[in-house]
Amino acid sequence: MLNDITFGQYYPAESPLHRLDPRVKLVLTVGLIVVIFLARVAVSLLLVTALLLAVTLLSRIPLRLTLKSLKPVLPLLILTAVINLFYASGGRVVLQVWKLTITTGGLLTAGYMALRICLLILGSSLLTYTTTPTDLTDALERLLSPLKAVRLDVHSLAMMMTIALRFIPTLIEETEKITAAQKARGADLESGSLLRRVRALIPILIPLLISAFRRAAELADAMECRCYHGGEGRTRLKQLRLAPRDGAALVLFCLLAAGVVLANRFLPGLLYGLFARLW
């Protein structure tokens, strides 16, 4: 079950997306999130979807893998859709059962919300699939470096993030091992009331916590043995440099953003109109 969390796992491949400067990718991902929420009408949402699909194909990451990143958020996705289905109003009434009414407006809002969440997850997991955690935090450190002026220790923050990301798979593996070991002693995790099931997690969580602290202490020792003393005067093996393709990516993104804003402004209700007429 825990293996399903592919979010935040680098997938090695040779693609223009992999070669893009991580700073640019980070900025574009944040930009994409903004654009996804800016996209209010069907045409602009479809525009974003099309671009994201094209970029995914460009990244040479198997489509199945990217879709797998949606699995953990599926409950959230369904919940949001269902709530919007009943609460959003407008349009014609499609179905009415007791006090619950489903309107065409509700259907559309639910669909939009679900699509937005999907796009958010796909977009951000594309970043983590094509960028190694080290590159990512390196980019973050560079982008946040102006904050050093306000005495924010950007380097330490970036280092903490790198370590946290690096240890997610390790801790997942550890959880699986401990779960299997406690099951071997007859731990029953699958049956009983909610309270019983939560209590059944104690034999797993305590060893996991202890092992996390042990690992942290060992890692700190190992870092100190290699004379780590924070970011002061630390140089890099890999210097980040912007290339023409980074500029191209930025331009492409600006075009998308402009397209979305224009579609919002001039093409509202285009698909909605079609949809309503067909109904």
Partner: peptide, 21 residues
């Protein structure tokens, strides 16, 4: 199947990392 786990006891590698109580 859980009943068989009491009859076939498995001690994992580095079992000391499962102590919890």
């Amino acid at each position: 199947v859980r009943q068989y786990r009491f009859r076939v006891g498995l001690v994992f590698q580095y079992p000391e990392y499962q102590l919890f109580d």
